[in-house]
Each structure stands twice: as C-alpha cells, then as structure tokens.
C-alpha cells in the first residue's frame, strides 16, 4: 500500500469522524425577542395565546401533516398585524421562524434559528421574499407556488408549511 493511499484513507476517516461533530450546531440568525421588537417598531404588544381546540388541531394537522408540538401557540397582535414564532422540523431538527401577517397577507418571514445540517439557504432574502403578500385562497391553499432550492427541499417545504400555518392561525384570531 503506498503512502498516498494510506493518507487518502486517513483523510476519509477524519472526515467521517469530524463531520458529525458539526452537523447539529444551532445557528441563531436573529433572537426571536429582537424580531418581535423590530416588527413592532420597538413597542411590541403583550403576547397572547391561541389554544388549539379540537377543530383547530384538525386544521393544523391538515396543513402540517402532523399535530403541532404544543397545545397553545403564542402570538403578538397590535390590531393591524399579528406575529407568530413557529417551529417545524425540516429533516430532524426544528426551524424557528418568525412570520408577520398583515391584512391576511404575509408581510415578512424570517428564519430565526436554524438547527439542520443542510438547507440553511432558506434563510436568505432571495428565498424568503417569495412569501411576501401570499394569502390563502378560499380552498385554504397558498396563492402562489414557492420556488424550491436544490439541496434544501425539506427546509423549503417546512417554511412553506409554516407560512400556510401562520395565515391559517391569523384567520382564527380575525382582526
């Protein structure tokens, strides 16, 4: 066995050993607290909660394909817009996302905490800007198709589901 072959094998071993150490890092792009404050011009309203009743749970399950992880969802509402901090798993870890809904349309969406090993591209504005002004149709579907990102399909799907969920939840608290 040549030295080069041995070295190549060692390099592969190193990659195998080291990659798992980094793949579960948590990237905080913006603290949820800051996102809330910024979205309401530094004067956020008091938080409120929406309890997921049996009917709501069914609606949420239809959107996500599974039950939401908790019985109540916290939101902030100043009478003009509502803000939701929601989480959905892309592949194995939850993506924490801030979503602002105004006039039953998406005003802003931002990935706040990303924990997956792949698919972090969904944080970039070129992707999140697509969601601006999206609404729900009368058939409870998004008014626009979201363009995917190669290699980030699961994260793209997770964010699309969360957008759908935020619009649905906003309907329930009707301004």
């Amino acid at each position: 066995m040549t030295t080069t072959t041995i070295m190549k094998r060692h390099l592969i071993c190193w990659i195998i050993l080291l990659v798992p150490q980094f793949q579960f890092a948590e990237d905080i792009y913006q603290e949820p607290k800051e996102f809330i404050s910024e979205s309401f011009n530094n004067t956020p309203p008091d938080p409120q909660t929406l309890w997921l009743t049996r009917d709501l749970k069914a609606g949420v399950k239809k959107i996500l394909g599974h039950n939401y992880s908790s019985f109540r969802i916290r939101y902030w509402d100043d009478g003009n817009k509502s803000l939701w901090i929601l989480e959905e798993i892309g592949k194995v870890k939850p993506i924490t996302t801030g979503i602002v809904v105004s006039d039953q349309k998406i005003e802003r969406i931002k990935v706040l905490i990303y924990r997956e090993s792949h698919g972090y591209e969904v944080r970039y504005p070129f992707f999140t800007n697509q969601f601006k002004d999206i609404k729900l149709t009368s058939k409870n579907r998004l008014t626009k198709k979201i363009d995917g990102i190669s290699g980030a399909t699961l994260s793209v799907n997770a964010l699309t589901r969360l957008t759908h969920l935020a619009l649905y939840l906003d309907q329930q608290i009707s301004h």
Binding site: E31, P32, S69, S70, F71, R72
Partner: peptide, 15 residues
C-alpha cells in the same frame, strides 16, 4: 405539561 404529559407550551429565551 398536562398531567397526561402532553405539551401545552415550551418556552425558551424570548418567553
């Protein structure tokens, strides 16, 4: 948690 162990809410840094 409910007494049955269902999650009502999980609160972290901002809550």
């Amino acid at each position: 948690l409910t007494v049955e162990g269902d999650i009502i809410e999980k609160m972290s840094s901002f809550n």
